[in-house]
């Protein structure tokens, strides 16, 4: 999970572990990108608005690279038409806007990650 909101990442991570899933946290986009390159994950939960490098930059870098991930965008921001086009061209499978119901979040993660 790549999100600069530490509270949310900790909570989602705990929530997922309660549901028998492992979650790696990255509170900085650059760290998240490095994890994605070095490791393998069933899915990536990605926030869009982050300082320095944002979620759109990550999606663009994934597109430019050989790595392929099933991405779930989880954001509190409104997405402009222009940015929506960027997302459509990426590996993003689902876009969820915060606040999202916890059951829906779990369902979507399971669905995207084929769990």
């Amino acid at each position: 999970m790549i999100d600069d909101n530490e509270q949310i990442t900790k909570m989602v991570s705990t929530f997922l572990s309660l549901n028998n899933h492992k979650c790696t946290i990255a509170n900085h986009a650059q760290d998240g990108l490095e994890f994605m390159i070095k490791n393998e994950y069933d899915a990536v939960i990605l926030d869009l608005t982050m300082p320095d490098m944002d979620g759109y930059d990550i999606l663009e870098k994934i597109n430019e690279s050989d790595i392929r991930y099933k991405v779930i965008v989880l954001t509190a921001s409104n997405i402009s038409q222009e940015n929506m086009e960027k997302i459509k061209q990426s590996e993003t499978k689902i876009i969820l806007q915060k606040p999202v119901d916890i059951d829906v979040l779990l369902e979507k993660i399971s669905q995207v990650a084929n769990l």
Partner: peptide, 17 residues
């Protein structure tokens, strides 16, 4: 607006936990 949504999300997960 952004922060409010984040807080609501935190609350939802916190309630669950």
């Amino acid at each position: 607006e952004h922060r409010l949504r984040e807080i609501e999300q935190e609350k939802i997960i916190l309630d669950y936990l």
